[in-house]
């Protein structure tokens, strides 16, 4: 099966391309794809850094099984820094 990988901002510059096509075995997970991508583009992110990804425009975890035709976006840190997380309701009491 084939999936499209999109690169943005820092990752686009490091990969030298905005998108790539990857062929995977059926049942491959997002985590396996990300490792494959990092193998092809070793400068994408330092080895200790987790690469956050979205599948078909939703943030997804490494264990998600990919489907033929999926669009996977690699998401560098957004403009305010930090990593995406659940709604930050704590500590915002009235």
């Amino acid at each position: 099966m084939k999936v499209t990988v999109r690169f943005f901002a820092l990752y686009r510059e490091r990969a030298g391309t905005a998108r790539g096509c990857f062929t995977l075995s059926p049942g491959a997970t997002l985590g396996q794809l990300v490792e494959t991508v990092r193998g092809r583009y070793p400068d994408l992110a330092p080895p200790h850094v987790e690469v956050v990804a979205a599948v078909n425009t939703e943030y997804a975890e490494a264990g998600v099984v990919l489907q033929d035709g999926d669009e996977v976006a690699l998401i560098p840190p957004v403009s305010g820094g930090g990593r995406p997380g659940p709604p930050a309701f704590a500590g915002r009491d009235h």
């Binding site: 820092l10 850094v49 987790e50 943030y59 840190p77 403009s79 820094g81 990593r83 995406p84």
Partner: peptide, 15 residues
Amino acid sequence: WVGCQSHEPSGAGAR
């Protein structure tokens, strides 16, 4: 790229 200098995400699991 702002946010990429000291805040590269680390740790396990996506959001």
